[in-house]
Design a protein around this nucleic acid. Sequence first.
DNA 1: CGGATACTACGGTCACGGCCGTAGCGTCGA
DNA 2: TCGACGCTACGGCCGTGACCGTAGTATCCG
Lengths: 249, 249
Amino acid sequence: MTGHGPYLAEIAHLMGDPARANMLHALMDGRALTAKELAYIAGVAPQTASGHLARLMQGGLLAVAVQGRHRYYRLGGAEVAAALEGLMVLAGSQPTSRKLPSRVGAELSQARTCYDHFAGRLGIGIHDALLSGGHLSVADGGYGLTRSGVAVFAELGVDPAEAASKSRRAALRPCLDWSERRPHLAGSLAAALACRCFEAGWVLRKKDSRAVSLTEAGREALASHLPGFRCDEPDAAIPAARAPATAFA
Amino acid sequence: MTGHGPYLAEIAHLMGDPARANMLHALMDGRALTAKELAYIAGVAPQTASGHLARLMQGGLLAVAVQGRHRYYRLGGAEVAAALEGLMVLAGSQPTSRKLPSRVGAELSQARTCYDHFAGRLGIGIHDALLSGGHLSVADGGYGLTRSGVAVFAELGVDPAEAASKSRRAALRPCLDWSERRPHLAGSLAAALACRCFEAGWVLRKKDSRAVSLTEAGREALASHLPGFRCDEPDAAIPAARAPATAFA
DNA sequence: CGGATACTACGGTCACGGCCGTAGCGTCGA
DNA sequence: TCGACGCTACGGCCGTGACCGTAGTATCCG
């Protein structure tokens, strides 16, 4: 009857501890961190963190890469990141919760990584430009690239065929953005594009954060190869003038 | 730094209790249930359930409609359902977890409701037929209807304009199916279509379950107005011959 | 107006699990 | 080979919260 409810509870319970939630949140950018770093982030002693990490491993939420005496932990897969985003959509809209600390919140809303692809207004800008330019088609399981879309990616330095062949997961699919409540692009192709942007110096990681920043070179590169690309900078205007997010229906 | 991790933990913690998870799971079909029904489903006393429901309400995961001396609880919104589906994707793929009870699992995989729309192979069949028939366009935030799509909905007895005007949420958007790992249609239009299918007797609810069944009349109606519609019935063949679900990549 | 029903509020009990102490194992550098 | 480092395993302390009993409030019915 209520057959697999308990499994859902198991997973949610794993994510429901503040220390573990902080760890998972920190790993959302797709990097791999050591147990000690995660312990610091979670605000607990290394011994405690070790226990948490073991439980997260057993639940399949984390994967580990051993290198010498270091153990690098990363998220268990894109599905885990997707599930966490789903929860963040809710967490961001809690009426009881105070709003994000404005400084950090503004940076994250502007541009950040979501596991291995871009989110925030940067991610949405890329998504919308590709869509309105007719570079995306709706295909089985998510988006596909039209012929012009293949060309756009090639101009940006990403070979769609190569990126798709490396992984079995969907090449492109929509992912709901927790800060903007609109979809951005996820999937192996979106990951490859993000990787390219970092390599080319178009986007820079900020330290100790999932926030990233679009450089002037990046803005030009994207705008020239992707007509219609816009990435609003509300900070340029009055920060408080953001449109009130429509409360969820 | 790790600013809003705690909010994520709050939400996940709410979902992480077996009793609450069972309640949420039972509400995924979009129906509204009373506290007593939910108590029975969760396997706890009504007093205990009352406390759980209050906490879920405060967290925004549930909404309530008071009618006389009954309080009907339902999910707080489509975002809540989406977040739960994300977790189910993980819960369904846990190597440590036993598989679904085969009988129930087969029924649910075939056709079920997901909050207020159809999921399972039925939902995917509708989604794919609309897509391959050119009745859907990719629009900002999800899908849109092409001119032929409007006609298809009208023939099926659903007025797209009316359905869209009733609610401010997206009319059509993809929703990841936890059993099939492919998108089906969500949104107010998908909900209206599901409602129409129930009214017309094309789809019947099964008791005490989110599973539904497509009647012969329903199969004919969908097939005639929606060329290309297919809804596999693996039960017609050897039940055990289901394709082994590809373990998550 | 009484009784039944549906639900919520309060209080006591108890167990799960988070926390850090110390201790033990494996890896790296000198 | 030895010491430093990263991490894990075990044990005891303690707080959070799930549970149900009893009691109280609101609504419907006869």
